[in-house]
Write a protein that binds this DNA or RNA. Structure first.
Lengths: 236, 236
DNA sequence: CTTTGTGAAATTATTCACAGCA
DNA sequence: TGCTGTGAATAATTTCACAAAG
C-alpha cells in the first residue's frame, strides 16, 4: 500500500525552488538558525558535506526532524551523500532573510543596551548597529565604544535618514510600550524586545522577545523538578 | 451524551493538591512565568482577583488555554469569581520552584557577564549572584559594582563553600563546554547558557539557553516574510 | 551500501463547548 | 449571571518506515 505507479506521475514534480507557500511550522524556523550555525562551524573545519544524522546528533534532534525541516523549503539534499555545507548555508541564509543587511538601533543605554552594542554577532547576523539612544540627559552625549549616545528626540529623523528598520528595546518595562510606539512611528518594522513586558504592536511590526526572567524561571522549575536536560529560551 | 451519573462518582475526587504526577506540557511551563509576572503587576495595583479571560487578554492567549494550563497543577480557581491573585501567585511560585532561593555565579566578565551582574531581576526571581569569575588575569581583581572578579581557580572551592547551585555561562562559545564541565564538576546543578553553543551535560544538570543569534534570525525571518505581529513567551 | 524526501501514524498541544458551581 | 474545570474535537508537530536515488 505504499506507493502505486500512478502516484509517481512522470510529470517531474517541480524540484527546483518550490517556494513553499504553504504553512511553515514555527519550530522549524527556530531550528533553522541552529542548523545554520552548526553548518558554518563545520564548513570552517573544511567539512563539505553533512548528513541529517550528523546535523541531528550535533543538535540533539532526530535525523527525520532535520530532513522534514529542510524539506519544507524545497529539495536540496543529495541522496547517499547528505547536504553540501556551502549550498545549504546559502539556502538557509536566504530563507532566513539574511541575504539582506538591516540597519538597527538600540534604545536604552543601561546595562543591557551597553552590553549589546559591542556584541560582534549582530553584524554577522545581518544587523548593523548604527545608533544608540537614551532618555536620560546625563547619559546622552557620553561615548560607548565608538558610539555616542543620542537623545531620544533624534530618533525619528535618524531612523528615516539612516533607514533603520530594526529597533532593539533595552529600556525598563514601564517604558517599553512607549518606546515601541515611537520606533514604529518612525518607520521601524522589527523589534527585538529585552524588556519583560508584552508589546502591543498590532500588525505594524514583528516582535521577538528575549526574556531573562522567563529563562530563569524555567531553570528554577527544571531544577526543582529534578529534571535534567536542556531547553532554549527566546520566542517571537 | 455529555455526562452520565456513573461518571460523577460521589467519591469526591481528590480535589486538594493533586500533585500532578502526569506529564506537564512544556509550553505550559513557559507560560507559567508569564502568568506570574502579570499577576504580580495586577496585585500591585490592588487587583485581588483575575479571570482566565483577563489573564489571556493581557498575554495574548485564549481563556481556555489559561485554564488548561492552571488546571494541570490542581484546582485553585473560584467559579464565578476567577483566581485570587495572591493565592495564585503563591501557587505558581511554588510550582516554579521559587519558594527557594538559589545561589548563583557568573563565569565570564565580558560584556554580557558585566551586564547581568547588576540586573536586579535575578534576586527577585530567586537567584542570588554571589560571585563572578574570569579567566583573564588582567580582569581578575577588578571591581564591578560591589563584586570583585575572581580567578577561575577559585571556582571549585567557592561553589562548595557558598553552596552555589546555578552557573551562568557568559564566556565565548569556544570556552562554553569546558566552563560547563567545571561548574558541574564543582557541584552546580543548573546552567543558564548565554554562549551560542549547545552544551552537552548528560543527565548531570539542567540547561536553559538564551541565544541572541537565534532571536535575531527569527526577527530577520519574520521581517523578510512580511509577517507582522507578535506571538509571545520564551521558548525551549 | 548510504542518505534523502515523504506519506502515514503517533504524539502533543490547542480550542471548543458545556456541566456545574457561586 | 459569570466563571471554572474538563472531556471531546481539532490542529500542529514529531516520529516512523520505506521507496527512490546517488
Amino acid at each position: 500500500m505504499p506507493s502505486r505507479d500512478a502516484d509517481w506521475d512522470p510529470t517531474e514534480r517541480a524540484k527546483r525552488d518550490p517556494p513553499q507557500r504553504g504553512k511553515i511550522p514555527e519550530p522549524t524556523i527556530r531550528r533553522l538558525s541552529l542548523y545554520l550555525r552548526e553548518l558554518r562551524e563545520r564548513e570552517e573545519t573544511g567539512q563539505t558535506t553533512m548528513s541529517s544524522k550528523q546535523l541531528g546528533e550535533a543538535l540533539g534532534l532526530t535525523d527525520a526532524q532535520v530532513r522534514k525541516d529542510l524539506a519544507v523549503f524545497g529539495q536540496f539534499g543529495h541522496p547517499g551523500v547528505g547536504y553540501r555545507t556551502g549550498e545549504l548555508i546559502e539556502r538557509i541564509r536566504k530563507i532566513l532573510g539574511k541575504d539582506h543587511q538591516w540597519n538597527a538601533c538600540i534604545v536604552g543605554a543601561g546595562n543591557i543596551g551597553r552590553a549589546l552594542l559591542p556584541y560582534g554577532r549582530f553584524r554577522r547576523d545581518g544587523f548593523d548597529l548604527v545608533a544608540i539612544f537614551d532618555r536620560d540627559p546625563t547619559v546622552v552625549g557620553t561615548s560607548i565604544g565608538d558610539h555616542r549616545v543620542r537623545p531620544l528626540e533624534d530618533l525619528p529623523s535618524l531612523v528615516k535618514s539612516r533607514e533603520i528598520k530594526i529597533g532593539i528595546i533595552a529600556v525598563p518595562a514601564e517604558a517599553a510600550q512607549e518606546t515601541a510606539n515611537r520606533l514604529i512611528e518612525a518607520g521601524v518594522i522589527g523589534l527585538l524586545n529585552f524588556a519583560p513586558r508584552r508589546l502591543d504592536v498590532g500588525q505594524r511590526a514583528s516582535v521577538v522577545n528575549v526574556d531573562f526572567s522567563v529563562a530563569l524561571e524555567q531553570l528554577a522549575f527544571q531544577i526543582s523538578l529534578g529534571h535534567r536536560g536542556s531547553t532554549n529560551a527566546t520566542k517571537s
